[in-house]
Design a protein around this nucleic acid. Structure first.
Lengths: 348, 348
DNA sequence: CTCGTTGACTAACGCGCGTTAGTTGGGTGG
DNA sequence: CCACCCAACTAACGCGCGTTAGTCAACGAG
């Protein structure tokens, strides 16, 4: 039973006094240092005192003395895309494994807020920085980020100054297409995202590769670009379905478009997956899992990207401690697999 | 232009030396203290030095000396849930206004993780704690949370030891029902969530109040309980629609159920909103905004709850500083309005 | 000429801890 | 019996900063 109310926090000195040893001894025991010896009895006395007094180390003081905060900073544009927060989860878990704590700041998708966020995080003396985007693209990273090791997540630096972790869009496109091919489809429509963005470029490339590898010549008429909305998916799907020689399967650039495609298919009294198979992209749970029939889709590996980014950051920091960074930009671009999630919109 | 590379961080002493004053003077100027005087010239010299050297205060050291970290802790069950993002956003913004920083930890919906999270946050010497749940209910808060001011968000403590901020479920239920009444509907079906949970109890109560106030006697046959899934909504809607004297409107306990209800309506070749009006609850953007027609729904005010909770926490801490807390449990329960979002599933 | 007084500063302590450089007292080997 | 060593500790410095208790020169009043 601890003291209640405004009683000052228990410090290491309190523990030392209670255990009748020096504060140094307490520090050594708690740090688990094996190079300096402490007798088992003393050790136990100290640990007992810790328990009795309810001692809790002061992370700030520790950081000050040890010259390392144990904190990582994560900057994300929380506002726009709810689903990208899986990055936080993965990063959080991985950081926890290394006994690091994640400081999360929001850039609100505004450059000045991003700068402010970096500044605040550096004041907290984070050991490294993660910068995450809601959708895969090139970003402008605040300059100050260069002062500590930094890893980009789901985005990349046009100037290649920072290493980044991004989804394997091409592989995802392949995987989706291959799944449809495996189900026997040969005329596969592709409703792409706005042209130019990495997701659109990569997924289209994967689509083409898969078809070519299967000995099918990609039919340009079966590829349409849309705008990442349900309405756009509805329109595009309608056009493909009204083709004279219509496709038997649709690969949609994302799940929202797939959602619109469902409506277009239904309006034509066609059945999913019997008459038209559909594969989405992104795995937005709230859509994909609850559509009827549930949507087979390719997942963006946000959580895994978060984990990987923290791992990478950890090794960057370790390398930096040993002075291995020689000022050269580290042009690493780690791509993470996009797994296919089987649901019910493609026949087995 | 700052020194690059591994150069040690600039400290206050560096600034003092560069400005040819004592460190104390620098501290005073940066703290903006008006009780002790510093001549304008000196002030400028110091501020110039700060800029020249790129001085950035060390938050940890400051916390240690000032005995207050400027940190709030936020524990959420699942960081990745869309709701959590909004709570975080609101809390983040509000905290930022007070120049506080939010430490976000996840309990992964496990009691032991929650304890660990509280422990870790207390090690960081957070000045207060927010504890947020994914769905409105009573929760078990780790005991250690009692050591600092704590506010519950979207949940409440059965023992009433902590103040909490929750959505106004009754008001939301009323609002949804009143909207349907205003559109001329009199037979309004209600597909409720699992009975017993606060959301189900409150929304039903609001539904009844609205009907009664409108002089309509609630018909028990029009109320069905489901399980918060699209399938369940589909089944329940089907049963209501197959009633001899079927309702002309459906109020669904949440948006997923509404999603299922859409399918049931479509199967019967009925149109939304012409034949059947539908109102949802929760405003899960990815569903509500992208259903066709877009779903009119009642929003859970997560962002506002986050903001309010931080405000409340701030005042609790301020009160504690002045010793106004006398150990009594503060049984506050702030309810936040649930606004109706007009879309297209109810005719104007 | 002395004594406050005030404006403009500074010396120095302590916050809680990691860490280095010791200091003991009880063996061992020669 | 002495030199040496080692296990088992402890003293004390410094991390970067807020804050209290000064110091010191200038200046006006008595």
């Amino acid at each position: 039973m601890r003291a209640s109310g405004k009683s000052r926090n228990v410090t290491m000195s309190d523990v030392a006094r209670h255990a009748r040893v020096s504060r140094t001894a307490v520090s050594f025991v708690l740090a688990g240092r094996s190079d300096t010896s402490v007798s088992p009895q003393t050790r136990d006395r100290i640990l007992d005192a810790v328990r009795d007094l309810g001692y809790r180390p002061n992370a700030g003081a520790r950081a000050l003395a040890a010259q390392r905060s144990g904190l990582f900073g994560l900057i994300t544009e929380i506002v726009t895309a709810p689903f990208a927060v899986d990055v936080i989860k993965g990063a959080q878990e991985r950081a926890w494994e290394d006994r690091k704590f994640l400081l999360i700041a929001s850039s609100e998708d505004r450059a000045d807020m991003a700068e402010a966020a970096v500044e605040k995080l550096l004041e907290q003396r984070v050991e490294g920085l993660l910068y995450a985007a809601t959708w895969h693209r090139a970003v402008q990273v605040p300059k100050a980020a260069g002062e500590v090791p930094t890893v980009l997540v789901n985005c990349f630096d046009a100037e290649g100054r920072f290493p980044s972790v991004v989804p394997d869009e091409i592989g995802g496109g392949r995987r989706a297409t291959e799944r449809l091919l495996a189900a026997g489809h040969e005329r596969i429509g592709f409703i792409n995202l706005d042209p130019g963005i990495p997701a659109a470029v990569g997924r289209l490339e994967g689509y083409r590769q898969a078809l070519t590898d299967a000995g099918i010549h990609p039919d340009p008429d079966l590829v349409i670009s849309g705008h990442a909305t349900a309405d756009s998916g509805y329109d595009a799907a309608g056009r493909l379905l009204d083709l004279p020689d219509r496709p038997t399967a649709l690969f949609c650039g994302n799940d929202r478009m797939a959602m619109g495609a469902y409506d277009a298919v239904r309006e034509r009294a066609l059945r999913i997956p019997e008459d038209i198979a559909i594969v989405g992209f992104d795995n937005q749970e709230l859509i994909a899992a609850y559509l009827r029939p549930a949507l087979t889709t390719v997942a963006l590996p946000f959580e895994e990207m978060g984990r990987t980014a923290v791992s990478l950051l950890g090794s960057l920091i370790a390398a930096g401690d040993q002075g291995k960074t020689d000022g050269q930009p580290i042009d690493t671009k780690v791509t993470i697999d996009c797994p296919l999630l089987e649901r019910s919109s493609v026949r087995p």
